[in-house]
Structures are given as structure tokens and as C-alpha cells.
Design a protein around this nucleic acid. Sequence first.
DNA 1: GTGGTCTAGACCACT
DNA 2: GTGGTCTAGACCACG
Lengths: 149, 149, 149, 149
Amino acid sequence: MTDRGMGMWIHVDPRSPVPMYQQIVESVKANVAKGILNPGDKLQSVRELSVELAINHNTVAKAYRELERENVIEVIRGRGTFITLQPTAPNAEQRREEMRETIRKLLIEAHHLRMSHEELWQMFHQVMEEWRLSRETEAPESTEEGEKL
Amino acid sequence: MTDRGMGMWIHVDPRSPVPMYQQIVESVKANVAKGILNPGDKLQSVRELSVELAINHNTVAKAYRELERENVIEVIRGRGTFITLQPTAPNAEQRREEMRETIRKLLIEAHHLRMSHEELWQMFHQVMEEWRLSRETEAPESTEEGEKL
Amino acid sequence: MTDRGMGMWIHVDPRSPVPMYQQIVESVKANVAKGILNPGDKLQSVRELSVELAINHNTVAKAYRELERENVIEVIRGRGTFITLQPTAPNAEQRREEMRETIRKLLIEAHHLRMSHEELWQMFHQVMEEWRLSRETEAPESTEEGEKL
Amino acid sequence: MTDRGMGMWIHVDPRSPVPMYQQIVESVKANVAKGILNPGDKLQSVRELSVELAINHNTVAKAYRELERENVIEVIRGRGTFITLQPTAPNAEQRREEMRETIRKLLIEAHHLRMSHEELWQMFHQVMEEWRLSRETEAPESTEEGEKL
DNA sequence: GTGGTCTAGACCACT
DNA sequence: GTGGTCTAGACCACG
């Protein structure tokens, strides 16, 4: 977005209880979902990203391996790592059930925060709108920078 | 719902990666949200519950401590533990923000599962309906069993 | 089978081109298939096995994680690692296709070793018989030693 | 099978975890086993094949070296590379033992996929039949195209 | 006690 | 240059 083309979009908080490798996984997936990272885009190498984030390369490698398992990225030997061209999500049904479970937890949390279903509904709506807007703003029409698959 | 009045509604899975104390916390909160547990209802003592679930009492104690911190239950010394009569949720604004963050993660996951926003919307709707129904079914009009505050 | 009940059945060759963590994975799966390790049996802890094999604990941990992903073992927090009671193999269809591919490679290799299909057939038969025999010999009727789930 | 006589039968996937040079080796051996390539047939030169596959020529050279080591092909200086006329497989006994080991691994995998020995047996049978059929279909009675040794 | 995460630094195979 | 594996040793959360 700013100086390096692809490289500015991941932040990791070492003090967070969520493991750093997982923060990386989530960051990459978020960037894909937002259209900041598109199929065929090249990611930084494990070592590059580890330097950028000032963390160990093993931690980045672990994140990349997990992303590969989820079919979000693919590794081309000796060339680097790229966003998968034809993504397919493994375990789709199981993951949908996990999403439902997450929604149930939101309902529980809403109850404890004394939010009505109406308010929760509005929150859904609002976040989805924000998301839609940010997608339109941040996603480049066509990336002219950065190597491609 | 069966033999003990209150006590049958918690299941804990030691195989789950989510810590057992947190499973208990979530179970209790779910029961409150569903109306199975109501303000003033008495909970089992730490020892009772630990026997019931066949787990270490420290684990149950940790869960109760967390629930107390969240103002879901209150301990009356010498009498026992009860669902808070006038619940107030601490850190409300922060927790609402966490809910928004959770919704954002759902949007990301939906993208990777190639779900449209329509479909996600339907999933929200469906889960909320199920929830409403189960509330009406499971929640006793008035609990006749079990000690009250 | 000799001194420690469960603990003698894994060997790992650090000079092999196949990664040590994968050798462990294969060893465990072989032991399960042979009936040496049965559902509910406890495995050595990550640290114990790493000492036994004189390798780093991270390597063992990686193997155990992979085995857990394949539903061969399950971790019970704070208690240890056990052979899954109700195993289910994920990605079954894909793995069957990989098996077919392996068989095709055997056909190719047989051709280059100038083996007739008849001879290959005999090799299959022979190995399966050996296997059946070793299962009957090595599998304990009931394990009296070692902790159980 | 189409335009170049010999040259269209190798596909290499840079995404695969198996090294590209080894994919080439396996491709060539598969073509020989299927009768698509026959003793005396000429292979493309290293440069030609590297252009065709759009990969580095060192990778192709490495594959050819491995094939030569296995006595599948032979290089005639100044004339080119040919399928060996009188193939002899080095390390035959060791390779047969590796085949047995592969079969053992299939037995283990079958167990974990909850396949009976019957089913595995059927899989063997089925793949061998498919193979036989494809041999009869694809193998030219006599190759009329392409240079010969 | 259990497994999970992380670091620092090494070596290797592949392209 | 790429990612993959391994070691040695540390810290943490959980039960």
C-alpha cells in the first residue's frame, strides 16, 4: 500500500495471547479476503518476512505451512510462495459448522452484554458494510507492482 | 433437565484444545443466555461440580473465579454460588469491539469458504432462529427446583 | 515388546533422507496397524520419547502434531497422548487415490526390474501373508502393561 | 502422441512437493513401462526438453543423469540420448526390497483407512487391469516417427 | 507433569 | 535464492 508493494499489510503483536504464527495466518487470509492480495501474487520469502516482522524465520515458516495446508498459498520450489490461483477450501462443511458455533457464541455474548437481537443484527449489518467499503477502497483494480505467478 | 435440577447441562471435553476451565465458563454463560439458569439460581459447589465432571477441583475453581470476574455469578460466603441478580457486564465497550472483530473474522472465513455475503447473512439468520426456538423450548417458565438466592 | 511395555517400537535413522519426524509418524502408524498399539493406549510423552530416541523434543512434537492431524492419536490436556478411541481418517478419498498412484508406481518399477505381473502379484501375496503372521505374533491379546485412556 | 513424435508425454508440476527432476525421471520411466517409449527411441536433448517444459536445463540434466545411472537411457556422445537397448536394472535386489517396503506401507495405510485386505486386494487388481488396458491402447505397435538408435 | 510456542543458529535439497 | 529440517534451550498455559 505504501512503500513496498506487497509487504506492508501484516502486523503481529508478540504480547498477544494468540500465537504469532497464527496472527500471520490470519493477516494473510484477511488480506486475501480484502483483495489486497490476489491469486498469483507473490508473498515475501520466509526470511524476508521474518526480518520485516523482527521475528524468527521458523515462526514465519510455520505460518506459511499452515496457509499451504489450507490451500491459501502455494509453494513453488526455488521460486517462492504465491497466493493460490484456484483456491479450494478443505473441510468446508466442518468449517461452516465452526462458523455457526461462532455465531452461537456471539448470541451468548450479546445476551451477557444485554444487547437485544435487534442490536446484534445491526452490528452484523454495520460491520459488513464497513467491510464492503474497505474492500472497495483498498483493493487495487490491478496490481502493477510485485512479482506474479 | 433431568435428575439434579441444576447440574446436568455442562459437558466438558478433555480432548478439546480449549482449556477445560474455559469450557465450563462458556457452558455456564450459555445456560444463562438460554434461560436454563436464571438470576438467583444456585450453582453446584466447586467440589460437587468437580466430582460430577470428574475433573480437578482447581479447574472448576478457576472457572468460577473467571465467571465471578465477569459478574455472571456471585459467591455468598457460607451460602454458595448464585447467578448474579443484577448482572452488569464489565468492559462492555471493549467486549463489543471484540464482537465486531469476531464478525470480521467470520467475513474472512466466509470469503475463503467462497460464501457470498448473502449466504453468510442467511447463516446468521438461521442460527438466530434456531437459538430463539431452543430458548423457548428449554427455558423453564419458572424453575421450581433447586435452591434460590 | 521387551522391557518398557510401550516404548520399544520406534526406531529412527538420522541418516535417512526421510525426515525423522516423519519416520516417527510412520512408526506409530505401523504399530497401530500391527496391533502393537491399540486404541486408548498411552504414548510416551514428547519429552520421554525425545530422550529415548536421543533427538530434540521439537522433532517429536512435530510428529505428534501430525499424528493428531491424522486422527491417529489424541492429546488430553495435562494427561498425555493416547491412541484415538474412534479413529476416523480425514481425506479418505484423496488418500485412496494416492494409494492407487503408489500401486501404479509399483507397476512401473516392476517393469524396470523386469518382473512380470505374475511375479508382482506373488510379491503382494507374500508381503500380505508375512504381515498377517506378524500381526498374530506381535499383537498382544490384551495389554496388561502401560496406562490406558 | 501428437505433434512431435516423442516429447508430449512429460508433465511436470512445479507446485508439487516432489522435486521436478524426479518428476521427469518418473515420467520417462512411466513412458517406458507403458511402451510409449521403446528401446532405441531417441529422447529430446536436455536443452530441447528444458525449453519445452519451461524449466532450467540443469534440472533436466540432473534427471537425465539419474536415468542414466538407472540404466534407463544411454547417452551416445554426439548423437543424443536413447532408451537403453538392453536394459539391466542395477541394485535389483535392493529395489525389490524397497518394493516390499512400499507394499507394507500400503498395508499400513489401508488399515488406517479402515480398508480390509479384501478391498486392498481389489484395489491392486483394479489398478493392474487399468494399466494393462492403457498399455494396449497407448503403446504403438511400432513407432514410425522419431529417430532411432 | 503435559504439550505449545518461540528464538538463534545450523545444514540440506532444490532451482 | 527458496523452503524444510533439526538442535539446544527458553518460557508459558493447563491440570
